[in-house]
Design a protein around this nucleic acid. Structure first.
Lengths: 338, 338
DNA sequence: CGTGGTTCTGTGAACGTGCACACACGCACG
DNA sequence: CGTGCGTGTGTGCACGTTCACAGAACCACG
């Protein structure tokens, strides 16, 4: 095993061919399949090791018109990227699925407008064969480019107005289910801190809550807050307590929100779950950090990533992915907070 | 602005040249600089917009031998990737720095051995011009490939036995500083839950703790645990309490560890900070979630990522990066837990 | 009017691969 | 003995770009 070619030059298929005493074509055939004698194959394989040959992907991409890489695009401000525990899971799930199919995942993070433009250029530059897109916006350069190029793609979450494959969880159904469980535990004055109502995930969770309560739904027990964040939950809970001191349960739109609510409740001298029951949504690390740990919905982040990746792979292998949603199961995780 | 070329074919310099009535060479010159008349330049620029031309990166890479992309390699098991709040920050910091220099960051996650091999192939395949490597191991395929190719690289954290640029924080100094502050607050029986002693970060934090205490250092108040995790902190604190019930302060090697310690202390009926003071390390989300919030060390994650990226960029622009470490400042964040 | 310089443009040759094609060989068949 | 087939191999071209080179046009100067 000699060290790499003297002149720092990476060895090519020519070098291998010369070392093995055959032509480039034959070398190419042992790499990509085709008729080749046992004798030649062995000679070439040792030659490859000898000269330390690794195919040049740029050249291969150029002629094949495929990169064997799939983009993973996160369109979130940096702060949210760090706070949202799901994004990491989605990323890992996608990575695992792609890696199994021998595709390379290329993760692109969009924070500023400048990033948006650069990533759009990257996509149209033919660096990737497809993309998994998290938190897409409608009518932004990314989705526009993707549509225009007809790039095989799958969204995590449902970007409104886009007819392409997407995966998500049944936010409405899960919210309804957990609210019903809270109700079944005997609670009567059940409130909700509803976050991010401008996204479908947020409004669906509220809709599920409303459905579960039916005629008992009381608008005044819903406190809308802008983000799925701890601070929002804390502030929301404070306002809710002021308005409805007799509340005996609250559904936080996320675990972070619910954790904030627990904090506010404790500050107000209420015991959880004795005085007020609390449930969250996500089954993130927040859920087990609060005291008591939260009953919540398991958001199958890795599963979402894997499903999205597989939808892209399907298109890549010539299949036609359903231009609709795939909903993953999101079961209740029963803990001590209600 | 006509829609993309009829036959789904991406338009090339040839198309632009034909549309503008010039030759490929002139088109290339307006893109890459060189003599070109005002008249031709304008014609070409409108032609580019007209046919929706975007350079093919594979072809450009092939001839230029540079990809304008830098790898970001995380060599951690999936679980840790999700738990460690620093990795996200490092990623974002690197992304920002690279994006400023018009480089594309390509994030590669290594979980299984299979990933290792694929990423090694990816690196040697010439997909990236350089790499930022987080949590490198000594003598694994990644570092071997990097060394062999002479790929411009910077490590976050100091991989033992590797003489290449790296960035990190002064774990020893920061641990010493925070221990001294605890001591100055009047505590006498100060323990430490020391995690990950097989890494330099872990052993340096312990060394700083020992230095700060000097002659008062008491081996029996050090409880070693394997990981920087919540569960380790909790278990470690329980053992420490059993062995030294009179302990009045504890230094957790990470915020997660310290949060676990707080939990164990509360379960044992001790008040924080009244009975026992607790400090952590990292200033991660854990620090503000515990009750009371933790006094800790601010680990400048984004700064680390940015510094590593800049070290790579320096090498890429022909500069010689110092084959030693850059230590970033890690100040104490004073909160209520001690 | 020849010479030398500057500005501008077109052409040919790479870059390293994969693929289509042509061809050589041995063998069996009619 | 020609034909066809399956197997194994070499060669030319294309992929889309950049770069070096050659040359054209223009101007100024001796």
């Amino acid at each position: 095993m000699t060290p790499p070619p003297p002149g720092r030059r990476r060895s090519t298929v020519h070098d291998v061919a010369r070392a093995a005493g055959v032509s480039r074509g034959t070398v190419s055939r042992v790499l990509n399949g085709g008729y080749v004698s046992e004798h030649a194959r062995e000679a070439i394989q040792t030659a490859i090791r000898e000269v330390g040959y690794v195919p040049n992907n740029a050249a291969r991409t150029l002629v094949r018109q495929r990169t064997q890489a799939v983009g993973f695009i996160v369109h979130e401000p940096h702060s949210l990227f760090l706070e949202d525990p799901n994004i990491g899971g989605i990323l890992l799930g996608a990575n695992t699925a792609l890696s199994k199919a021998d595709y390379q995942m290329v993760c692109l993070v969009i924070d500023t407008d400048r990033d948006t433009e650069r990533v759009a250029r990257y996509l149209s530059g033919g660096f990737v064969d497809g993309a998994v897109i998290v938190s897409a916006r409608h009518h932004d350069p990314i989705t526009d480019v993707v549509e225009r190029l007809g790039l095989p793609v799958a969204y995590v979450g449902h970007p409104p107005g886009i007819r392409r494959p997407w995966v998500g969880i049944d936010n409405l159904g899960a919210a309804r289910a957990i609210t019903e469980r809270v109700r079944a535990s005997g609670r009567r004055r059940i409130g909700m801190i509803a976050a991010a109502l401008d996204r479908d995930s947020g409004s669906d969770r509220l809709a599920g809550f409303r459905e579960a309560l039916g005629e008992d739904f009381d608008e005044s027990l819903v406190e809308p807050v802008p983000l799925y964040a701890f601070a929002d939950g804390e502030a929301g809970m404070r306002r809710l307590l002021e308005r409805a001191p007799d509340i005996d349960a609250v559904f936080g739109a996320s675990d972070a929100v619910a954790a904030g609510a627990v904090q506010a409740l404790r500050a107000a001298g209420r015991r959880v779950p004795d005085d007020v029951g609390v449930v969250g949504f996500d089954d993130s690390a927040w859920a087990v950090r609060t005291d008591p740990p939260l009953t919540t919905i398991d958001q199958p982040a890795e599963g979402l990533g894997a499903a999205a990746a597989e939808a892209v792979l399907l298109q890549l292998s010539g299949g036609v992915a359903d231009a609709g949603g795939i909903l993953l199961d999101a079961p209740i995780v029963w803990r001590a907070s209600v």
